[in-house]
């Protein structure tokens, strides 16, 4: 699998710094699970964090600090067991971070119809941004829309095409405020995406505006 559409540097750096809303962290972690290029880039941003930690000032630990830490590790060491290899659900479509949030594999997703054959499932994250799985039947178009903030779309199965290019499994589209786009699912198979928005989408045209309350997007 070759991922062609990657995360941007500002997102990778903000993920490394720990400054993103939970839903955005989720899509970043999911993309990185599928993309060694971005995993390596994240490693280099973490290294910047390490350098910042190294060069920042120091504040003396309190007097008994070392002793309490040693007490804690002694108290735990008898008990801590190395966890056996993960027995978590393995899913061919959903990488581990999504399995965690869904509480199981693809069959555990509680889809709700959003009209036109499109289904969605909103994942439980903090409210600053929204993460949803989208199920788009082969050949179906998502209405033309722009958005107020950031919109990130990661393909998990199938593919879609829009003004930004062709996106297959692992590819992520980072759409900024000014992009109006009409993603169309590839005709060859149904498409499953993870989409994250930090502000409601604005649809053009009447029908999509009616559909918007249902989609919740």
């Amino acid at each position: 699998m070759t991922v062609k559409h990657h995360l941007t540097d500002d997102l990778l750096m903000a993920y490394s710094a720990g400054d993103l809303p939970e839903a955005v962290n989720l899509i970043v972690a999911t993309h990185i699970s599928l993309c060694d290029e971005c995993r390596a880039a994240l490693g280099s941003y973490d290294a910047v964090g390490g350098a910042v930690l190294d060069t920042c000032d120091t504040v003396a630990m309190s007097k008994n600090s070392l002793q309490s830490v040693l007490d804690m590790i002694h108290a735990q060491d008898g008990k801590v067991e190395k966890k056996p290899a993960s027995t978590k659900v393995q899913d061919d479509v959903l990488p581990a971070p999504l399995v965690d949030y869904i509480g199981g594999g693809l069959e555990s997703v509680r889809w709700r119809s959003a009209g036109m054959g499109v289904k969605q499932a909103i994942l439980p994250t903090s409210k600053e941004a929204t993460a949803r799985l989208l199920y788009i039947p082969a050949g179906t178009a998502i209405p033309d829309h722009g958005h107020h903030g950031l919109e990130l779309t990661l393909v998990l199965k199938g593919a879609f095409q829009d003004e930004g290019g062709y996106f297959g499994r692992g590819d992520i589209e980072v759409a900024s405020e000014d992009l109006n786009h009409t993603p169309v699912a590839d005709i060859s198979e149904d498409c499953i995406c993870l989409a994250v928005t930090d502000a409601p989408l604005k649809f053009k045209g009447l029908v999509p505006r009616i559909a918007q309350p249902f989609l919740g997007i």
Binding site: G18, N25, A29, T30, R39, L42, G49, P95, D100
Partner: peptide, 21 residues
């Protein structure tokens, strides 16, 4: 640094931090 950062998110943002597989 990554351990300290995760501690910060845990304590200040009170959120889970999704980590890559």
């Amino acid at each position: 640094f990554t351990i300290a950062r995760n501690k910060k998110i845990d304590v200040l943002r009170k959120q889970r931090r999704p980590e890559p597989e």
